[in-house]
């Protein structure tokens, strides 16, 4: 309980630090958002009126205070380029990106764990060489390229899905998940090969330890030794790695959204960066930071549950 409390506190501090860093960096960079919004129509009167409207005439610390209390209430301010609040602009995109990331994580875990176990079982057969080679190659293919390959094979050649025909989740959730399968697979593929390789290595390492001999000496069958003793120990480093992988998967979804034209956080982040729509960028970064920190927290707690030796 104390451990959870400590972890949650660190998480909140990290998020606060991130929000301070993000807000001040975007406030201090040169350039006047009001001026760029008005463009050629700028006159001194209109400029100062707009600056007042956007709150730019107040000192930066005061603006941070207003922004931050707003964020706590779920209000990220107004977008510069879209005439609506950031929150309403991002709502749907958040859900879309979350569906994609969660699907990628599920695919990664569901495939890589059995695969890693299978590879460990076959580690002294000829198949091992094939597995290692294929794994090494898949690991090297960036998700946006595997996304294109998947589009070529399953979209254009086999016609299992129509590239670009994204279905929003609120109009048809099943169809949406169906469309998202290949993007999620593209994100998951390199992670699958990394996780399964790690699991294979740790299983082999754990299988050589002395407690395994003890387990055999009690009359356990090989399968029981594996599932009751080896697997739990072998999963501990895998869980740590999965924690880092979750963050990577969230970042990966930003790129892969682009490949499959999925209108999630990644797409709007890119348009906001080119359009210098700072409130939207700030909000997205903070949200992504929140997801990353949250997934780290979940992994920490899982880790704590799996490995009794950790007492922090």
């Amino acid at each position: 309980m104390k451990y959870i409390l400590k972890k949650v506190t660190t998480m909140l501090i990290t998020l606060f630090v991130v929000s301070v860093l993000v807000f001040f960096s975007f406030s201090l960079i040169p350039g006047n958002p009001a001026l760029s919004k008005l463009g050629t129509e700028a006159t001194p009167e209109r400029l100062s009126a707009l600056e007042h409207e956007m709150g730019l005439d107040k000192p930066v610390v005061e603006r941070f205070g207003e922004w931050f209390t707003g964020v706590l209430r779920g209000d990220f301010g107004r977008s510069y380029s879209y005439n609506q609040s950031v929150t309403s602009l991002l709502k749907e995109k958040i859900a879309t990106t979350l569906i994609l990331s969660v699907m990628a994580i599920v695919i990664c875990v569901v495939i890589s764990l059995p695969l890693g176990i299978f590879m460990a079982r076959k580690s002294d057969s000829k198949l091992d060489i094939v597995f290692s080679a294929v794994n090494q190659i898949i690991m090297s293919i960036p998700s946006f390229f595997s996304g294109i390959i998947l589009t070529l094979i399953f979209g254009i050649t086999l016609k299992l899905f129509t590239p670009g025909a994204y279905v929003p989740y609120h109009s048809d959730l099943i169809k949406c998940i169906g469309y998202m399968f290949f993007p999620a697979l593209a994100i998951a593929l390199p992670k699958i090969s990394m996780v399964s390789k790690l699991l294979k290595d740790t299983v082999i390492k754990e299988a050589g330890k002395e407690y395994v001999r003890t387990a055999y000496s009690r009359g356990n069958a090989t399968k029981a030794v594996f599932y009751r003793h080896v697997l739990g120990n072998a999963l501990i480093p895998v869980i740590t790695f999965l924690g880092m992988t979750f963050a990577d998967i969230i970042a990966g979804s930003i790129i892969v959204e682009q490949v499959f034209s999925v209108p999630g956080l990644g797409r709007i982040l890119l348009t906001s960066i080119s359009g210098r729509d700072y409130p939207v960028i700030e909000a997205i970064i903070l949200l992504l930071a929140f997801f990353v920190v949250l997934s780290n927290l979940i992994v920490d707690l899982l880790y704590h549950k799996f490995d009794p030796r950790i007492h922090v």
Partner: peptide, 16 residues
């Protein structure tokens, strides 16, 4: 039954 030299390593570290 059998007992071994290194009791720490001979016990599974994550089981009660």
């Amino acid at each position: 039954s059998m007992i071994f030299q290194e009791p720490l390593n001979s016990l599974n570290p994550i089981k009660k």
